[in-house]
Write a protein that binds this DNA or RNA. Structure first.
Lengths: 380, 380
DNA sequence: AGTCCATGGGAAATCGATTGCTCACACACA
DNA sequence: TGTGTGTGAGCAATCGATTTCCCATGGACT
């Protein structure tokens, strides 16, 4: 193959000879000893293809990108040459020239949270089907790290960004906007609402959970809340209060304990609630990891679920039905959240313009034994 | 700032004026209406910095990369200019020129498996501390998708690759090698062993699990095995058999049922075992997700754990202690696996050369109630 | 038959950085 | 004072693609 390439150097198409001389030198270096830092495996460049097909690089580019009409005969020659050389265009060079790429950045706040990873699956499936690759960035709810990654997204010419914002106000999308990189926020609301977003009806989900507990006969319902600094935390807490109000249950400040959406904080918050002089007879926990922690705290006591304390957690998980008793949850359509997010981003990438859109998906209550008091439940 | 920049266009340092004229035109386009495809926000280029600092771009580059000595006076001027313009070098241009980048690709086989996500946390922490970014690729055990991502890694000039191979033989590292991109494989063994790798002592872990079941009094121990096509599956099965042999337990073919490491297959495999004429009195399940499935299958029967059936699962999980009864597991040091993998890769990136190295970490048995038969256990 | 226009392809500029080569300048030494 | 040497900075080539601009060709129309 290398030989055939060289024989074509003398074709009537005159390309920069200096350049091809240099390229041949490179090949030699590669063949003999490997240089200190590895040469790319993109063995063939567009110039090699052009030479072999006896056309200009411009024509090769046109064939590849199909923007302009090209003589079918030439196009065929080019395609044959591409196959012959096993040529793949350099994404880096293309990105430098066009200032675009086909990589999407997904900036999430906790890679260990199954909610986000399931969501990423949804994003990935849609993106992969449209030939986009994903870069997953774990900002860990750290605004500085988030900012780093947003900067990286611009610097690397990312085609688009999916962002679960660390805070409603601390996130600065200006540089993305300036660079013309489309963004879709997901899961958490941003103060700035001229941005595409996919959200869950967190208030509704929390209301449902509390109402369910009420219907199950619980009357002193506590809450392990997330941080009110992020919209999911604030909304779920608001929903909890709304649920209490709907049934004229007292809204006792003491009954709300705050965590940070991680497991340990759930344990601590639950312990605080259990230590109250007049502890709750049921709790609504605002996310999956804190629910784990809360269950840990309960397990350390002699309390039994649901007889001594009922529990409903936000976010469904594969293992929720396996707990004894099985755990009642407010499940989010995580995969669909991701898929919908990806679709929104793709629509921007294919030219849609307009003001920020909002898609709100509904959570679903999975009633299991952790919240159903048969004794209190019976209407009799 | 834009104005100040322009006043310096007439400095004695003559840069391509055509070029700067063109740049000014770009700015205009950006300021008025946004062009069809967004211009990058890298508002300043190295040429702008050079102009402002009244030096050549070569000098600016040298100041940034610090390879060569530069007159402190000029270096200061450059640094001031960089700050003034808020200049960040274009990663894409740099990558094109140097054929390197500071992004690592992490190719895993299942993003929903907590094992991999925890591992990624370990990789990420180490990588982030050394100013590398991560691209997470989800190959889903699909060799074609894996190959796609490996190609992408080369094409995007990734600095290095972490790979959990989909199969011992189907993975082709040739193009990475040709491109000089260092790889570390993790979790699964590759037939080719001239590659850095971080592994778990899967055989030892499985032996420990079986021996523990034996000591607990179980005598007919079954296995829900992973696919033997991947080393983790084969090794854990081998360890199971080794454990049986150590105690002269019969190695009954029927007692092994195979799954694919996903949840549903665990359910099915467990159902098969339970349907045997002479079903096992305990099972060793070869990974976390299949354990979930197996527990599901057990829950659908009237069998009680551990009295009717004992169970030990490979991979510890946050919720394992919360199950009733709590689940005995063979826990892997997932985070450390990731951290160690990242360190190995970084050592290659900082110039280490030599044959493939192997690091094997040890799993740890977490004894909980799902495998401890108090009745049979008592030595009396 | 001559002119015009449409069309397609080639040459070269360009994206924004790095780096080999060259040259100027300064200093030391005879 | 003339020559040798070393150091640092600038010019320009280069990475590999895309895209603008221009020219040549061929067909249609007068």
């Amino acid at each position: 193959m290398g030989n055939r390439l060289l024989t074509h150097n003398h074709s009537f198409v005159s390309l920069s000879t200096q350049r091809s001389r240099r390229r041949r030198a490179d090949r030699g270096a590669l063949a003999s000893g490997r240089p200190a830092w590895g040469y790319s495996a993109c063995v063939a460049t567009i110039a090699d293809v052009a030479r072999l097909a006896q056309v200009s690089t411009a024509t090769v580019s046109r064939v590849i990108n199909g923007n302009t009409e090209v003589d079918p005969v030439l196009a065929d020659r080019v395609r044959v040459a591409i196959a012959e050389l096993n040529y793949r265009p350099s994404r880096v060079a293309r990105s430098l020239r066009t200032r675009r790429s086909s990589v999407l950045a997904v900036i999430i706040s906790d890679i260990r949270n199954p909610f986000f990873t399931d969501m990423v699956r949804g994003i990935e499936d849609v993106a992969y089907a449209h030939n986009y690759s994903l870069v997953l960035c774990n900002a860990e709810d750290d605004p500085a790290k988030e900012a780093d990654y947003l900067t990286l997204a611009v610097d690397e010419h990312m085609a688009g960004v999916v962002l679960a914002p660390a805070s409603p106000t601390g996130t600065d999308l200006k540089s993305l906007r300036a660079a013309g990189v489309p963004v879709v926020t997901v899961d958490r609301r941003l103060a700035d609402d001229d941005v595409d977003r996919v959200l869950i009806d967190n208030i509704g989900g929390a209301v449902t959970a509390v109402e369910h507990l009420w219907h199950s006969g619980f009357r002193r319902i506590g809450c392990v809340s997330g941080p009110v600094g992020v919209s999911t935390g604030a909304d779920r807490l608001a929903g909890y209060r709304q649920g209490l109000a709907a049934h004229q249950l007292p809204d006792d400040e003491q009954l709300v304990s705050f965590g940070d959406f991680h497991e340990e904080s759930g344990t601590r918050a639950m312990q605080e609630l259990l230590a109250l002089p007049d502890p709750p007879d049921a709790v609504f926990v605002a996310n999956n990891l804190m629910t784990l922690g809360a269950l840990d705290a309960i397990a350390a006591t002699s309390l039994r679920v649901p007889d001594d304390i009922g529990i409903v957690g936000f976010d469904d998980m594969a293992w929720a039905p396996l707990l004894r008793p099985p755990l009642t949850t407010v499940g989010q359509p995580t995969y669909d959240v991701g898929a919908e997010t990806a679709r929104m981003l793709l629509s921007r990438l294919t030219g849609y313009v307009g003001p920020g859109r909002e898609v709100v998906l509904s959570p679903q209550l999975f009633v299991r034994a952790s919240s159903t008091l048969s004794a209190r439940w019976s209407p009799a």
